[in-house]
Design a protein around this nucleic acid. Structure first.
Length: 853
RNA sequence: GCGAAAGUGGCGGAAUUGGCAGACGCGCUGGACUUAGAAUCCAGUCCCGAUUUUCGGGAUAGGGGUUCAAAUCCCCUCUUUCGCACCA
């Protein structure tokens, strides 16, 4: 017989809903706990990844709820974006319709799984009551100079007809459709995330984030400290500034390298005939795919510009070369080349016969130019460097920079790899950028009173090569809010990462129609105490959200410095070793599993299969195993209900009598009852004592695994083990009264421990025992240290590291006696024959290690 | 190339502080119940050896080291995954 999961799960969900168990209370007296899983993209229906993600969050939410926190676990939908637009096109529908349909299906599924979500805080980013505040935030960014428009080369995906952020380019390909990305120059909106580069590097205000994620963000920001050095052009007042992290090598600079995009090069080209070698070279390089051009194995090429710069430190003339290996985007867009001490410069100098000067010597043996086959890039002792000769690299960098600063040759500088965040998308399904272009007034923001700029619904979608919004003339053509004259709307929409950069804050006040959220509510709830999501968001989403949070702090919307205090990056769900995906055809529909085995089974399987941060490999048999386990629990209660009720009845009576004021006293009383006993209940068997130990050990283990270790698989394993221990007690009819109490308690604790992983069945069993309150209202179960003390402990006896025997001794046996006892074991004696005992090490309660020769 | 993490039975994984390697689950093998299957229950399940309820040896990617004691700490090598990658 299978346990009636369908009936139970429905019933329990209704009760939770009726009693508003998961409704978060703004500003409650209780301490708050905000648990959040990254919100889903409405893709039609839930997939296994969602189940895994939200099951993890639900364990934490229910645990905190049981601990007495005011818990908020909200849910929403990241519903703008390309896939929705493409999906609608494919189905000859409209994204407004298809996304709302998807959301409806998913919400229903979420409810059928019984996650502890506060459904009164739902958000959907594609609805005007949400995106209006995205537009509002954009305007505040603009006012602060953090949103601006500029021409720039952008990553362009021909297939998606849109611009991609650097973070969305993977290996030179579009992160969604895997089409090769090419460079295109467009005028784009940017957010000045670089203003926050330094603060984004500082993780001191988060409580617990994986090192891996912090490192990835730090790499992405890519801070380097060095020196800006100003070179004068020969016969000109122009100055070229270069950035270097190795000012100690400045005396070895023998040429300068510029990219063809450099503004000075552009100037020079004006005086060049189109068919000159230089012009040809520049246009060739600029037309090359930037991804290919910047690949490491691309050969370094260049051409002499016929111009010279003056090295400020020694007045020497250096050739200026135009090359393909320097990036306009990094540093100052110009490089001082020191071929002796930089591998790229070395290769280039060898190829084009440019002089090489050694200025750093190794401490061990002198470098000889003719013998060098590669650059010496390590630090060393300065030579050929005028007054700095003989200095050590590290010290000289500071000295040289100081000296250059005094003489106006350069100064200390910091450079970041991080670029500003391009947020323009030439796509329909996104938040309209609240900007109007007027011939007279230029770029004008839509006034707050006219927000939201509603995304028009009446558009022609299809395989157009341009933004569908351009065709909605009645929307594009508008009047200028300043002069009232004819004007046009911005047709770019915002990157969906903008929408997801502040949704966690909107959850604190979803119905607010005067501001994004009220400050007091945000300050009550934020930061999110536990954020959960995939590692794939380590850089983009998690960094953008941090940027937004700091911005919102700076304009006074929130008081905290970081949005997410703790971060858990959960693994993927795989099948046959690969990530479950429709394209690979290795998906399993969660709904099918829920219909067949119930939500509790699916959750237990997911949580038991591996720890949260690791991938979960799907296994049909594993699901059956989880189901079998829940059935075993159910059967235990069904078959022994009256016996198991004893503990509940006793506990109730105790409460009524107020005889015991706390659970420790209660446990003590029970202990007295059990050991001293009444008539006919004098003794408890060792077997039952072991069971009582198991009960308290399991409580301790489960609490520790959830709260301190976040390792749910071993918590579930512990409950399974405890269940096995209970089933190990046969002949229940022969139990004395005292033993019955202990047995009953050992069973009755199961619903309170299993609740986090299989809440429906746990709640049902709990109520079957006669409890009128819900499981979480009973609070976290407590273990009694007294019952974790064992009378006897097992010592392992080792000789030279090999196990030669085991012994059971009373806990308080003195060390000397333990040694004696160990030496009396037959097998130990045998192995010690003819050997001399050098030392005996006793590790209390664990082992005896004998050193003998 | 640089950086990080990881590598444990047939499989997922456990071993929390250096202290009995393989918890728990899956699978498999045998048995009970059953007309049969499903379900359930019981027993077994790292490898080798023998005197086979016991004992000995080996085993945590491979090699070396520290230690009474190493999956755990150190060094080298290999493999996998992830991140970064002409960053001046």
């Amino acid at each position: 017989m299978e346990y009636p999961f369908e009936k139970i799960e429905k019933k329990r969900q209704e009760i939770w809903k009726e009693q508003k168990v998961f409704n978060a209370i703004d500003g409650s007296e209780k301490p708050k706990y905000y648990v959040l899983s990254m919100f889903p993209y409405p893709s039609g229906a839930l997939h296994m990844g969602h189940i895994s993600n939200y099951s993890i969050a639900d364990v934490i939410a229910r645990f905190k709820l049981m601990q007495g926190y005011n818990v908020m676990q909200p849910m929403g939908y990241d519903s703008f974006g390309l896939p929705a637009e493409n999906f609608a096109i494919q189905n000859h529908s409209h994204p407004r319709i298809t996304t709302d349909e998807s959301i409806e299906i998913m919400a229903k599924q979420f409810q059928s799984i019984g996650f502890g979500i506060d459904w009164e805080r739902e958000v959907s980013t594609c609805h005007p009551d949400y995106y209006v505040w995205g537009q509002w935030l954009f305007k505040r960014m603009y006012e602060k100079g953090l949103a601006y428009k500029k021409f720039s080369f952008v990553n362009w995906c021909e297939n998606c007809q849109t611009v991609l952020a650097n973070e969305q380019v993977e290996d030179g390909k579009c992160w969604r459709c895997e089409n090769p990305v090419r460079q295109k120059e467009l005028k784009q909106w940017f957010f000045k995330i670089t203003d926050y580069a330094e603060e984004l590097l500082d993780f001191s205000k988060v409580i617990d984030w994986p090192e891996r994620v912090k490192t990835m963000q730090a790499n992405w920001i890519g801070k380097s400290e060095g020196t800006n050095i100003h070179f004068k052009l020969e016969d000109s007042d122009e100055i070229i500034t270069v950035f270097t992290t190795r000012p100690d090598t400045i005396f070895g600079c023998t040429f300068m390298a510029l990219p063809p995009e450099h503004p000075l090069v552009t100037e020079w080209l004006k005086d060049e005939p189109n068919d000159s070698k230089i012009s040809k070279f520049c246009s060739k390089v600029m037309n090359e795919d930037k991804i290919l051009r910047t690949a490491e194995d691309t050969t370094k090429e260049g051409i002499f510009s016929k111009r010279y710069a003056i090295n400020p430190v020694n007045g020497k003339k250096v050739q200026i070369w135009i090359t393909n290996y320097v990036l306009m985007e990094y540093g100052t867009g110009a490089v001082m080349a020191v071929p002796a001490h930089d591998q790229r410069d070395f290769e280039f100098a060898k190829k084009y016969n440019i002089p090489i000067t050694i200025v750093i010597q190794t401490p061990e043996k002198d470098l000889i130019l003719k013998e060098m086959t590669e650059a010496y890039i390590e630090l060393g002792i300065l030579v050929n460097s005028a007054q700095f000769d003989g200095m050590e690299s590290t010290a000289s960098m500071q000295a040289i920079t100081d000296w250059m600063a005094e003489n106006n040759m350069g100064e200390y500088a910091i450079t970041y790899r991080l670029r500003d965040w391009g947020i323009s998308r030439q796509r329909y399904w996104g938040t309209p950028i609240p900007v109007i272009y007027c011939d007279k007034c230029g770029t004008v923001l839509v006034p707050d009173k006219d927000l939201p700029v509603i995304l028009p619904i009446n558009v022609k979608l299809g395989k157009t090569t341009q933004n569908p919004l351009l065709s909605v003339e009645e929307w594009v053509n508008t009047t200028c809010p300043q002069c009232g004259g004819p004007a046009k709307r911005e047709t770019d929409t915002m990157d969906t990462f903008v929408d997801s950069s502040w949704y966690y804050a909107r959850y604190t006040d979803t119905k607010n129609d005067r501001e994004p959220f009220a400050k007091d509510k945000a300050d009550y709830w934020l930061p999110v105490d536990q954020y959960i999501g995939g590692i794939e968001h380590a850089v983009m989403h998690l960094m953008y959200a941090r940027f937004f949070h700091k911005f919102m702090r700076d304009i006074g919307l929130v008081s905290s410095d970081e949005p997410f205090a703790r971060l858990l990056t959960q693994g993927m769900v795989t099948k046959d070793g690969a990530k479950m995906s429709k394209s690979k055809g290795n998906t399993v529909d969660p709904q099918y599993i829920i219909d067949r085995y119930g939500s509790d089974t699916l959750r237990v399987f997911m949580l038991f299969a591996s720890p949260p941060e690791k991938d979960v490999e799907w296994s049909d048999e594993g699901v059956k195993g989880a189901f079998r386990f829940l059935n075993r629990v159910w059967r235990l209660f069904e078959e022994n209900l009256e016996l198991i009720k004893i503990a509940t009845k006793m506990h109730k009576k105790e409460q009524e009598n107020k005889a015991a004021t706390n659970s420790h006293e209660l446990a003590q009383k029970e202990n007295d009852l059990a050991t001293k006993g009444h008539e006919g209940t004098r003794r408890i068997s060792n077997e039952i004592k072991e069971l009582r130990y198991s009960t308290h050990f399991t409580i301790k283990k489960v609490l520790n695994d959830i709260e301190d270790r976040m390792q749910f698989n071993t918590a579930i394993a512990a409950i399974m083990e405890h269940l096995n221990n209970i089933y190990g007690i046969t002949e229940l009819g022969k139990l004395t009264d005292a033993e019955k109490v202990i047995f009953s308690e050992s069973c009755a604790v199961i619903p309170r421990l299993l609740y986090f992983f299989a809440p429906h069945i746990s709640e049902e069993l709990w109520s079957m025992l006669g409890n009128e309150i819900l499981v979480h209202e009973a609070g976290i179960p407590e273990f009694n240290k007294e019952f974790l003390k064992k009378d006897e402990v097992t010592y392992v006896v080792q000789i030279m590291g090999k196990v030669r025997g085991k012994m059971e001794v009373p806990v308080d046996t003195p060390e000397e006696d333990i040694k004696k006892l160990a030496l009396e074991i037959e097998n130990v004696k045998k192995h010690l024959q003819g050997k001399e005992i050098k030392k005996i090490i006793v590790v209390p309660k664990k082992l005896v290690s004998i050193v003998a020769k």
